[in-house]
Amino acid sequence: MSIQHFRVALIPFFAAFCLPVFAHPETLVKVKDAEDQLGARVGYIELDLNSGKILESFRPEERFPMMSTFKVLLCGAVLSRVDAGQEQLGRRIHYSQNDLVEYSPVTEKHLTDGMTVRELCSAAITMSDNTAANLLLTTIGGPKELTAFLHNMGDHVTRLDRWEPELNEAIPNDERDTTMPAAMATTLRKLLTGELLTLASRQQLIDWMEADKVAGPLLRSALPAGWFIADKSGAGERGSRGIIAALGPDGKPSRIVVIYTTGSQATMDERNRQIAEIGASLIKHW
């Protein structure tokens, strides 16, 4: 067993022997301040990774656009098919120029040779490549099948209805392509620590998230040296922004954090800054 596999296998073990965790309302004060600064709703939840206990939450059962955070769930569904012998990570998928959609920095470079399922998941999570996500959605049967996968996990809230990039439209009061912070946090925890996926697939999923290259201005910008984070960000229309993450000190994750916002007129930089400040408060009061 590799060191990384050992780390993920012992996530519940280490967490069980940690000192009790206590909620700190100071972080919620910052979440509410972010709402004021952005002029928009902000949803927040913080779960203990081992027990699933909610440590703090704000608007945990209000719907927010998922945006690209759905790509972690998508690759979880792909990995479940791999575990069941219905898919192979090494299978190569070929596609054409007509398949390319807006923001496809990886797939646009491989029109000639195609990409493997493993490479597509890596591109979808680490670079948020939209064509990679659409190609992977095709392998599982489309958005409705991802929703069905989530329902089978016990998540009857999260739903995907459309493809990239239309799913980022974020129309107010439109339930399409949305989740709730509580539902997303619980589902992410199941994917990373539950028995739904094999140990190898859980490790692969967290490795992809740990290698995320496009979430630097968010929670990662607030992390002290030595902290662990595996995350996936999302951005959408109407001032929408979000991030889902597993993080913790001492090089291992111990909490799940989900943050979503929508309806702001603020710039992307300002949305990023507010999420980073929430992260800084979380870490300060850990």
Rank of each mutant, 00 (worst) to 15 (best):
H94W: 13
S233H: 01
L282K: 02
N173T: 14
P249S: 08
L19V: 15
L247P: 00
K213T: 08
P25N: 09
L89W: 06
P249C: 07
D113R: 10
A276N: 09
L205H: 01
Q204H: 11
Q97V: 15
L191V: 09
K109T: 12
N173I: 09
G52P: 04
E145H: 09
P12N: 11
G194P: 10
A222W: 06
Y95M: 07
I45E: 05
T186A: 14
I206Q: 12
H156G: 15
K190Y: 12
A123K: 02
D250G: 13
T262H: 14
L19C: 15
E169I: 10
D113E: 14
T138C: 13
A34Q: 09
E270Y: 07
F70R: 02
P217Y: 07
G43C: 03
E210R: 10
I259N: 01
H156R: 13
I206D: 04
G85V: 06
R81H: 10
P217K: 15
G52I: 03
T158K: 00
A40E: 05
A123L: 03
T178M: 03
H24K: 15
R41E: 07
I283K: 05
S122D: 15
R202L: 05
R162S: 10
Q97L: 14
E108I: 11
R92T: 11
L28M: 12
A245R: 00
K232F: 00
R189K: 14
H285Y: 14
G142P: 02
K144W: 09
A84Y: 10
S68Y: 00
V214W: 05
K30P: 02
F64Q: 02
T193Y: 15
T138H: 14
Y260S: 02
G194T: 15
G251Y: 09
A225D: 14
G239K: 02
V106M: 12
V157I: 12
M268D: 06
Q86P: 05
E87I: 11
S254D: 13
P172N: 09
K252A: 13
R63Q: 08
A123I: 04
S122T: 12
P105D: 04
N130F: 00
L111R: 08
R202N: 06
K190V: 12
T138E: 15
K232M: 00
H24N: 15
A23S: 07
F6R: 09
T187L: 08
T158F: 07
A40R: 03
D212R: 04
M127I: 09
L49H: 05
L38P: 07
R220V: 03
T186S: 14
P253K: 08
D48F: 03
D48A: 08
P105W: 04
K144A: 14
S104P: 02
M1Q: 01
S122F: 15
T147F: 02
Y95V: 08
L282Q: 06
L120W: 00
L192Y: 06
E56T: 11
Q265P: 11
F64C: 02
K252Y: 12
I259K: 00
K252D: 09
Y260F: 15
V117D: 00
A40M: 09
L205V: 06
D48H: 07
R202P: 01
T27D: 04
F14M: 11
G142L: 01
V78T: 07
M184I: 14
P65H: 04
R92K: 12
A15G: 15
A280K: 15
C121V: 03
K190F: 08
A15D: 02
S221D: 09
F228E: 04
L197Q: 05
M268E: 06
P65A: 06
V42Y: 06
C75Q: 01
I140E: 04
K144S: 15
A200L: 10
P253T: 08
R241L: 03
L192E: 02
K284C: 09
E35I: 03
D269N: 12
A15E: 04
P105R: 05
G39R: 14
E87V: 09
D161E: 08
L282T: 09
A34P: 02
I125N: 03
G142W: 01
T147V: 11
D177K: 01
G154D: 09
P165I: 08
Q97P: 14
M180G: 11
V8A: 13
T107C: 09
I171M: 15
H151L: 14
T138P: 06
V29P: 04
Q265V: 12
S233W: 02
M1F: 02
D269C: 11
P65Q: 03
D250E: 14
N130D: 05
T69R: 00
R220L: 03
K213I: 11
Q88L: 11
A40C: 08
I93E: 05
R189C: 12
L19D: 10
F228N: 06
I259V: 14
I140H: 04
T198G: 12
M209N: 00
L223A: 10
V117Q: 03
L282S: 06
C121E: 01
A170M: 07
G90P: 08
G248F: 01
N272G: 05
T261H: 06
D155S: 02
R202V: 08
H5S: 07
I244H: 01
I259Y: 04
S128V: 00
E195Y: 07
F13A: 14
R176C: 09
T147A: 07
M184K: 01
L219G: 03
G43R: 00
E175Q: 14
P20R: 13
L160W: 02
R255C: 03
M67K: 01
Q86F: 10
Q88K: 12
T262K: 08
S240Q: 07
L196T: 15
T131N: 04
F58A: 09
F17V: 15
D177T: 01
M153S: 13
N50L: 12
F13C: 10
G141W: 03
F17L: 09
L137W: 03
I283W: 07
D36K: 15
D99G: 06
L146W: 05
F17R: 05
Q37H: 12
S281Y: 15
V72P: 10
L223Q: 05
